[in-house]
Nucleic acid binder design. Structure first.
Length: 842
RNA sequence: GCGGGUGUGGCGGAAUGGUAGACGCCGGGGACUUAAAAUCCCCUGACCUUUGGUCGUGCGGGUUCGAGUCCCGCCACCCGCACCA
């Protein structure tokens, strides 16, 4: 066979067209084959594909192609999470309409994805910003409303007083608006909520069945949902009013030394009446951001209201503080503070000179031990607590609840950390919430026939705030109940709503309904879902909730959308920077601008060195990005795909390296040369070791792909390649070469098709079956036994597989090296692990 | 701050409680070539008195015949924290 080189710039496009023409990856829901739904989290169309997307989609692609080879009918779709803030930012900065910007990005990114040869069913492509998608979402939202899962309530937002705009958390930097720089305030707005808390128990219990989810994700969701058993009871205040508090540590009730309420608690507001300093303190609490991280890292501050609360057991008058670390959203918005056994309370008590009683100790004898640097929140026995003294923490909790209930001043209560999902966004580029505000009828749902309620096109982004709210024409509508003039809801839905059901729409796309239950039932649950860990909680919890809500409404059979979840790591790159001589600030350089040698990096422009910084997630701000297009153009899609799979385990970060990328490109060509040595008519003696290696590799690669251990599969393929290269020409060798083509087909599909054709195999390798394994060839007959003395390796010996313990022991003792190490000492014990090792203990 | 994770050669990593470093990258040496590129072969954890030995999986302890792996306590970094997606 004549030598010719593999040219990806020709081959990639040719095979991509061939798959497209043959509609190879079109999913047929009518197929009788077993079905597999392989899904990667759909991208936000930011403009260009990021190398992280390439990694994510390559993993899914390998699995999708492998499943096809294993005889499955595979659904592997792609779409666009197309609503969101960046489009509005682009509109403000460049004056381009969000829709135009988004659609142009989609077009560009789709072409980029297609150049990578992904086995996607593009006929099911969807974009959440199109009325054909969000109109159905509006219908589903109305269904949820009818099911009683949608309601309105007041909730806080970040308010920029200068721009007169609601800010996202990421737009608040150090408590200030990102554009205006003004101090951000918390402001209350009436907003739409989904009752995810109705499903708290279900979502928690359901985690148990998600066996193919990472434990860490299940644990994070469990903690997020946060079921706690505690006591809710009321203090009687010195004003005569009751004050309800909730505590998860009723056992420590005798250690309470003060009571604290949230800044917007009615008790706080009452205290502020005619008290300017209390008012000032509440205003102080309203400044700054709304995030939990900010609230909890902020210095603990309080204000003594002068009101006291009567302790239910001791009758002691406890001071009532307004405190910035108490949240109105959790429990009752008021706490009994036990500084000895809660760190936040401890810090607060220390700052304000309040008592820190000890009520839990390691033993009864240590009842008066002083505290160290912080609170002690661990296990122990109760002390200084009257009837609880000597009890364990759990026993004491139960006892306090029992007494509270029998004396009817409190009750045991399960409280969830999970809060209802606020879905209102005061923005243009999102799904309009299908409701109408009427002066007489109130808030009424838009009639289903009026859907989709589409976004107006004529909007301006030069003024801050929500363009929908300013759009007098779009807003004006007839009240569906009384026919009077009314206005549309101008809030749009959180983009997490868009991604909470897109996997259903991929499975079934009727024009008149969101999805067809029967079609959905054929594909769901998703066999393998792949995406970043950053979605471990919110997106995945919301999608689970949405699916369960639809099931409760009788719209779906399936309870959990994703049978198996995989969270992949980020792609990272080292950074190149120089520090400015005057201000000391770092300016970054892109890899393109830098010449990297083994121990240093210089700027191409001036030949002087730049600082090589840490290896971090690729980001525009650090300029440590690599453009997929450039790399694909330079090395071909297969080499890039191979690099994405090599070396780093998929759940970990993948450090980009040009050298590693080039190594992958070399391997593509090395394989091509080897494939060229295939000889269909090869004769000669059978090469048993090669046959064995070939079959062991088929089995190992299959296991590795199924477990998404791509880096291990890659290593096995390297080994087999080296073994085939070394082997003498024979029928076994040619069989191994053909096998190799099939093994790399899911990973390097273009090379594999090219080789498949060159080796005169029928059809497309994409349609070929996965090679069969001969189980007889998987077993080795000789094994290497490690010989240790006192746990230290002294020798290795070869022995027949399955040799008896006595034989192995004799063999070990016969070793000269072992005897030298023992040096005549008395043997006390010999540990023999069959087929593994012998350890001699003296 | 709270919740979750990660840590092994120069680098990415491999290793059911049983030979630590498979495989890849970098680096070194050699072959081929007028030369270079490409390709192929060999070496490549550190140290030492080098046919051998000692040390070595973030740090400090522990369990075990045997620990990268299990237990306890630290450290560093990464992810999430409800309006980024």
């Amino acid at each position: 066979m004549a030598e010719s080189s593999f040219d990806p710039s020709q081959a990639d496009g040719r095979w991509q067209r061939a798959w497209d023409e043959a509609q190879t990856f079109r999913a047929d829901s009518g197929s009788s084959k077993p079905k597999s739904y392989v899904l990667e989290m759909f991208p936000y169309p930011s403009g260009r594909i990021h190398i992280g997307h390439v990694r994510n989609y390559t993993m899914g692609d390998v699995l999708a192609r492998y499943k096809r080879m294993r005889g499955h009918e595979v659904l592997h779709p792609m779409g666009w999470d197309a609503f969101g803030m960046p489009a509005e930012n682009a509109a403000m900065e460049k004056g381009v309409h969000p829709g135009q910007w988004t659609r142009a990005n989609i077009e560009h990114m789709k072409a980029q994805l297609q150049r990578l040869g992904f086995a996607l069913d593009w006929s099911r492509e969807l974009a959440t910003c199109e009325p054909e998608y969000y109109g159905h979402e509006q219908a589903l939202f109305l269904d949820l409303y009818e099911a009683g899962l949608v309601y309105r309530k007041e909730s806080e937002v970040n308010w920029d007083p200068v721009d007169q705009t609601v800010l996202a958390n990421e737009q608040v930097i150090d408590g200030k608006g990102w554009r205006s720089g003004a101090e951000v305030e918390k402001r209350k707005l009436s907003q739409w909520f989904l009752k995810i808390t109705d499903f708290a128990e279900e979502l928690l219990e359901g985690l148990g069945a998600l066996e193919r989810w990472p434990d860490k994700v299940r644990l994070m969701q469990e903690n997020w949902i946060g079921r706690s058993q505690g006591l809710q009871f009321s203090f009687t205040l010195s004003t005569g009013e009751p004050l309800a508090v909730y505590t998860t540590r009723p056992d420590t009730i005798f250690g309470a030394s003060f009571v604290a309420v949230a800044a917007d608690h009615p008790v706080a507001r009452a205290a502020a009446q005619g008290n300017p300093s209390a008012e000032e303190f509440i205003a102080l609490c309203k400044r700054g951001g709304t995030t939990a991280a900010e609230l909890e890292t902020a210095e603990k501050l309080g204000f003594d209201t002068g009101v006291t609360a009567r302790h239910p057991f001791t009758g002691e008058a406890l001071p009532v503080y307004i405190a910035n670390f108490v949240l109105m959203d959790y429990g009752t918005g008021a706490i009994m503070a036990v500084p000895g056994h809660d760190q936040r309370d401890f810090e607060f008590a220390t700052k304000y000179g309040l008592a820190i009683p000890r009520v839990v100790a390691d033993s009864v004898a240590q009842a008066s031990d002083p505290f160290g640097v912080g609170a002690e929140s661990g296990e122990g026995v109760l002390v200084n607590s009257r009837f609880l003294d000597g009890m364990g923490v759990d026993e004491a909790k139960a006892e306090v609840i029992r007494r509270a209930e029998s004396e009817s001043w409190g009750e045991g209560k399960t409280v969830w950390r999970l809060r209802d999902w606020g879905v209102s966004r005061q923005r243009y580029w999102g799904t309009p919430i299908p409701f109408i505000h009427c002066a007489t009828c109130g808030v009424v749902p838009a009639p289903k026939e009026s859907l989709p309620i589409t976004l107006p096109e004529d909007v301006d982004f030069q003024t801050p705030g929500n363009p929908l709210q300013r759009h007098e024409v779009w807003k004006r509508v007839e009240c569906p109940q009384c026919g009077a003039e009314a206005t549309r809801e101008t809030d749009t839905l959180d983009t997490f709503v868009n991604s909470s059901w897109y996997f259903l729409r991929f499975a079934s796309q009727p024009a008149d309904r969101p999805f067809d239950p029967e079609e959905v039932a054929k594909w769901l649950p998703v066999e393998q879902y792949i995406g970043g860990v950053e979605h471990a909680i919110l997106h995945l919890l919301y999608a689970r909730f949405w699916t369960r809500a639809l099931r409760r409404m009788g719209r779906l059979e399936v309870a959990e959308p994703f049978a198996s979840l995989f969270t992949q790591g980020m792609v990272t790159h080292e950074t190149y920077a120089r520090r400015g001589a005057d201000d000391g600030r770092q300016s970054f350089f892109s890899p393109e601008e830098v010449e990297r040698s083994s121990d240093r990096a210089v700027l191409k422009a001036d030949g002087f060195p730049v600082e090589i910084g840490r290896v971090v997630k690729m980001s525009k701000s650090k300029k440590n990005v690599v453009d997929p297009d450039t790399i694909v153009e330079r090395h071909g899609a297969d080499a890039v795909r191979w690099f994405m799979l090599s070396d780093s385990p998929p759940e970990r970060d993948l450090p980009w390296s040009d050298a590693g990328m080039e190594g992958c490109a070399r391997f593509v060509h090395r394989l091509w040369r080897l494939f060229g040595q295939y000889d269909a008519g090869a004769e000669g003696t059978e090469d048993k070791p090669l046959e064995r290696k070939t079959h062991q590799t088929i089995a190992a690669v299959a296991t590795d792909i199924e477990a998404l251990g791509f880096n291990k599969a890659v290593a096995r393929i390297y080994e087999l390649t080296a073994a085939v290269e070394k082997a003498a020409p024979a029928a076994s060798r040619s069989r191994a070469i053909l096998t190799l083509v099939q093994l790399v087909a899911p990973m390097m599909p273009h090379l594999a098709e090219e080789a498949w054709q060159k080796l005169a195999q029928p059809g497309l390798v994409a349609d070929a079956p996965w090679p069969e394994v001969d189980p007889a060839l998987l077993v080795e007959d000789e094994v290497t036994i490690a010989i240790q003395h006192m746990g230290k390796l002294r020798d290795t010996l070869s022995a027949p597989k399955g040799a008896s313990k006595a034989d192995l022991e004799a063999l070990a003792l016969a070793s000269e090296k072992v005897q030298r190490s023992i040096d005549g000492a008395a043997i006390r014990k010999v540990i023999v692990v069959p087929d593994r090792l012998v350890n001699i203990v003296t």
